[in-house]
C-alpha cells in the first residue's frame, strides 16, 4: 500500500485514533494519503488544516469545482496518479456534469488544459502550470496576467494556494509510495461552512 509502515483504523490508538475519527469516511475507513501520516499524527493534523482551508473553506470565493480542477491539473503535471484520480472524482462531483468533467480531464491529459476553459480560468491554468513546473521562473507579469483576466488579489491568492498545496500533497504521495488501493474515490472534507469539520463524504 505504501513504502513506509502505516497504522490501520482498527489498530489506531490515542491521538491517531482521535484524528482518524475526525477524517473518517462513511464506510468507517480513512483515505490512504492520510494513513501515510500515521507514524507522526501531528503531520496529519497539519496536512488536514492546510487542505481544508485551501480547498474547502467558506472564505474562498472561487468555486470549489475550479479549485479542484487546478488540483487535477497540478497532480497530472507531477504524475501523481493518486491525487489525479481522487481529485478528478472530487471535481466531477462538484461540477455535477460528467460530460463536462470528462472534457476537462481529456484536455489535461492532452497537456492542453487551457482548451477546456475560457476567460480568466484559462489564465489561471497558465499560472498553475508555470508555478508547478518552473517555480523559479515566476515573474510579476504572471500575476498581472491573472489580474488583467479579471481576478482580484484575494482570488489570485486562492489560486496560488491551491497550486502550492498540491505541490505538497503530490510529493507526500510520490515520496512515500501511496496508492489508491482500498480507497473510496471522490470523498473529501467538503463541508466548507465548518472549517473544523474534517469528515470525508461524497457531496452527492
Amino acid at each position: 500500500m505504501s513504502w513506509i509502515n502505516t497504522v490501520n483504523v482498527e489498530q489506531a490508538e490515542g491521538r491517531l485514533k482521535k484524528l482518524y475519527k475526525l477524517v473518517m469516511r462513511p464506510d468507517g475507513d480513512v483515505d490512504n494519503i492520510l494513513k501515510l501520516h500515521s507514524l507522526r499524527p501531528h503531520s496529519l493534523e497539519g496536512h488536514m488544516a492546510l487542505y481544508k482551508n485551501v480547498l474547502h473553506h467558506y472564505g474562498n470565493s472561487i468555486p470549489t469545482s475550479f479549485l479542484e480542477a487546478l488540483g487535477v491539473l497540478v497532480s497530472w503535471l507531477n504524475s501523481c496518479e493518486y491525487c489525479f484520480i481522487h481529485h478528478y472524482e472530487g471535481m466531477a462531483k462538484q461540477v455535477k456534469d460528467r460530460d463536462r468533467a470528462e472534457q476537462i480531464k481529456a484536455a489535461i491529459e492532452a497537456d492542453q488544459a487551457e482548451q477546456a476553459f475560457e476567460g480568466k480560468e484559462k489564465a489561471a491554468i497558465v499560472y498553475a502550470r508555470k508555478l508547478t513546473v518552473t517555480p523559479k521562473d515566476m515573474v510579476e507579469g504572471d500575476v498581472i496576467a491573472l489580474r488583467d483576466a479579471g481576478y482580484d488579489d484575494g482570488e489570485i491568492l486562492e489560486i496560488n494556494q491551491v497550486v502550492a498545496y498540491f505541490g505538497y500533497a503530490n510529493r507526500t504521495i510520490l515520496g512515500l509510495g501511496g496508492s489508491t488501493k482500498g480507497d473510496l474515490l471522490g470523498h473529501s472534507p467538503n463541508k466548507s461552512e465548518d472549517p473544523n469539520d474534517w469528515s470525508h463524504s461524497s457531496p452527492d
Binding site: 507522526r40 503531520s43 497539519g46 492546510l50 499560472y127 508555478l131 508547478t132 517555480p135 523559479k136 515566476m138 510579476e140 504572471d142 500575476v143 489570485i156 491568492l157 496560488n160 494556494q161 497550486v163 502550492a164 498545496y165 505541490g167 505538497y168 500533497a169 510529493r171 507526500t172 515520496g175 512515500l176
Partner: peptide, 18 residues
C-alpha cells in the same frame, strides 16, 4: 518527506506571489 513537501508548498507561495 514532510519537511521537503512543506518547503515545496512554501516556496511556491513565495515565488508565485513575489
Amino acid at each position: 518527506n514532510q519537511a521537503a513537501c512543506y518547503t515545496a508548498y512554501a516556496n511556491r507561495t513565495v515565488l508565485g506571489l513575489g
